[in-house]
Design a protein around this nucleic acid. Structure first.
Lengths: 337, 337
DNA sequence: CTGTTAGCGCCTTCAT
DNA sequence: ATGAAGGCGCTAACAG
């Protein structure tokens, strides 16, 4: 079988002209006579000729492919980000290669390796929750493959990134709770590697301080994001003599688990205990007891901006211009449900 | 800038041997002397040599890339399918290119075109809801790019596909409702292009017939999957003098909208009206009023099986064997919540 | 065992 | 206005 697709060579032979003439004609090179050009195009059409992109990629040392590495497509946050990425990439004739780390640094390394082999032109990445060192990303520099991080960005200096500043919204979120009369407010944080910058926590402190509420470190608990761990964390909070009446939670998925569990324990949501969280995922629309408010982190925009930044880097590469490290920071927004 | 990566040529020059010897040594070709092989490998390591895959792809006419076309990554069904696809593809050294049609045939065509240009080795596709003709897929044959459809498969003969048979579960679902004492059961179907085979509807009929319940065609309504359309469809059902007490719904997303709307209208779920649907998406776990049961369609398995089938096709291509059209059908399963 | 040669499909000087 | 030739990086058939 093995159909052979037509090549410029074949066109050239049939027309008894040279390959380079065909190539030029196809590209509307000015120095080609009208009649030959037409003849070439006609023949190309007849044969259903299409340029072999892999050959062109090979020659141009460019694949028009960008690799996206993220923890998990099943999280709405990341699938929305993909939409933002595609929105910029596709019109620019780039195509998107996706790899999921499933929050495991080993997978992340493998994916990066594979993408390198496939000679992607650039990489967008949101790091896994146990990624604490970045050699594998660092290494891309020596291959001249630019990397732009988004959302989950490493807390090291020399990288490009797009992320969402959560500080102000965190202050706002806690103030929102305070405004509702809450005096004892807990904070359930995620894995230490993720919130390195700890804007959430800083905002939490700031709001308490601003309203002269005491800080009780024992009201700060952690979850590794698993349901089990979240339940344990909530148990811890509820075991205090002075139980919190509200909790600021790392993200909506965790909040859903927490709310689910609280209800199992017969707590009345928004009476006995209230939750505010991050991500603003859309399913909460169908819930009877969603977090009362959630911080929107604009995944679509983050994806789009990160892709734009990556394209700037790719340009500067071809223009041999220097390009300083850029860290785009978007504003988050508290959405009250 | 423009770093030049080391090539076998460079290794050859430094060692003053021929390019092909280097190539062979690197591939552990038996006919290469131990000392030269070692020398070559050592030099390769020193220079940080890595084969240029794009060159290899080009030569082998193979990209080790498969394209996946699906409506929307944000639907859990499809992101789960991707996981099944990756589970088979990655270990086989294939990488996955993703394109979303957003349920629009025009996008579908563009994506297909782009993937063709990128010379993907094969394609997995779940068609958009307004894809009624398949020339663009058909055309792939002339480029020798095999296509395997999954889940949303076209209802035409000569294609490869993996899908889930919904007939039996549909019967079961309706019988489940009948068992709960429901006598008037509605059916809310999706866009005509999607359920062409209409296994859901056939199952619906069959169950009614089996239990000697009358068929009332006016209890069968349609939604285009949008919230608005779903609400209108539900209104239609509720406008009957003999209102249904239960409804079989096209999928969970539609069901969520329907339930949401029913509750707005002060209907008590599972008292005044019950819902059973398809897909079994995981968020229902957090809902107070989920559909009482949902038909699991095993997206992960569908993705995995489709990928396996695609690989068989790719093999048979290189072996020049004939391969008959294959239509794998998985069993669905009614999950009671 | 190793080297030479040709070629994958296309583009691009350099000639003519 | 057109052709010839070389090369991108790698593989493989053909010679020794």
């Amino acid at each position: 079988m093995e159909k052979k697709l037509p090549t410029i060579k074949e066109i050239a032979q049939r027309l008894s002209i040279s390959i380079s003439t065909v190539s030029r004609a196809l590209h509307d090179h000015p120095s080609i006579g009208l009649r030959t050009r037409l003849a070439v195009k006609k023949m190309a059409a007849e044969l259903n000729y299409e340029p072999n992109q892999t050959a062109i990629f090979f020659k141009q040392r460019k694949t028009f492919t960008i690799g996206v590495i993220l923890p998990n497509l099943r999280e709405e946050f990341f699938s929305s980000a993909i939409n933002g990425i595609e929105a910029i990439a596709l019109p620019n004739n780039y195509i998107v290669l996706i790899g999921q780390s499933h929050d495991d640094i080993e997978n992340e390394k493998k994916i990066l390796e594979t993408m390198k082999k496939h000679r992607v032109d650039g990489i967008l990445a949101s790091i896994s929750k146990n990624t604490t060192q970045f050699d594998h990303f660092e290494q891309m520099k020596s291959y001249d493959i630019p990397v732009v991080f988004f959302d989950r960005v490493p807390d090291v200096p020399d990288v490009h990134s797009v992320s969402c500043n959560l500080y102000h919204s965190s202050v706002e979120a806690v103030e929102f709770l305070i405004g509702k009369g809450h005096k004892i407010i807990g904070y359930m944080q995620g894995p230490p590697t993720l919130g390195i910058k700890n804007e959430r926590l800083a905002g939490y402190y700031e709001a308490l301080k601003k309203h002269k509420l005491p800080v009780d470190e024992s009201l700060i608990v952690s979850t590794d994001l698993s349901t089990q761990s979240t339940e344990a964390a909530l148990d811890l909070l509820l075991s205090k003599k002075k139980k919190p009446t509200a909790v600021l939670v790392f993200n909506d998925y965790v909040a859903l688990d927490a709310i689910h569990y609280a209800r199992q324990k017969k707590l009345r949501i928004d009476k006995d205990i209230s939750f505010v969280s991050y991500a603003n995922v859309s399913v909460t629309r169908y819930l009877d007891y969603p977090p009362i408010a959630s911080v929107e982190q604009f995944p679509y925009d983050q994806g789009a901006r990160a892709t734009e930044l990556l394209f700037k880097l790719l340009d500067s590469k071809t223009n041999r211009q220097e390009f300083p490290y850029e860290n785009v920071v978007l504003k988050s927004e508290l959405i009250v449900h």
